[in-house]
Nucleic acid binder design. Structure first.
Length: 185
DNA sequence: CTTTTGATCGTCT
DNA sequence: GACGATCAAAAGC
């Protein structure tokens, strides 16, 4: 799959694709696009910093950051070097390495093993220390796959630019996150 | 089913 | 010093 194009184009193509990190494989079911410095909801909105530098690098790397001091959220970096474009992975179905994921996530229902960005990061065993990991088939790989009916809607959990429909998910897939936005937003 | 709240800390102002 | 690209548990219907 070609990743060297804008996140907005890559995001829907990632649905149905299988991402493998170590011994765990996920079929992606829910993603969100974050499109460069012009996107007020993106970490790159105020320009390059030590944390988001990976977003400015070449496509095909993982950008991992800590959310709320607790969770690791995983992005796939897109577009050409110099452009801060990335797709946040929000949910997936565990298709390999379930035993390994159980060790990290415990006894939760199968569909919730990697449902929600924090849970997905935990399922893959990634932390901020893994940010910049290259998807080159060694420790991480990505293979395109068939997607069913794709739906779009506003992004979740952001307080700025929440009106653009840059969230993509597979209709009727039970692993799609059920997160509801905090009322104070 | 829905709404509310505490946990917890790196990052940027 | 304030604020999150969040989650789970608890309490209210």
């Amino acid at each position: 799959m070609r990743l060297d194009r804008p996140a907005l184009e890559v995001a829907p193509d990632l649905l149905g694709a299988v991402l493998t990190v170590g011994e765990v494989s996920l079929r992606l079911t829910e993603v969100e696009a974050y499109e460069g410095e012009a996107d007020p909801a993106s970490h790159a909105w105020r320009g390059i910093t030590a944390r988001n530098a990976v977003m400015y690098g070449p496509a095909g790397r993982l950008y991992v950051y800590v959310s709320y001091g607790i969770h690791s959220c995983v992005n796939i970096v897109c577009d050409d070097e110099g452009r801060a474009s990335a797709v946040l992975l929000r949910a997936g179905e565990v298709v390999a390495g379930e035993e390994c994921v159980r060790g990290r996530r415990g006894s939760v229902p199968y569909r919730r093993l990697a449902s929600g960005p924090g849970n997905l990061g935990s399922a893959l065993g990634l932390t901020a220390a893994d940010s910049g990991l290259v998807i080159d088939g060694v420790r991480a790989s990505l293979v395109g796959g068939p997607a069913g009916e794709v739906r779009t809607g506003p992004r979740v959990g952001v307080s700025r630019a929440a009106d653009v429909p840059w969230r993509f998910w597979l209709a009727a897939d039970p692993t799609v996150s059920t997160y509801t936005r905090s009322p104070r937003a």
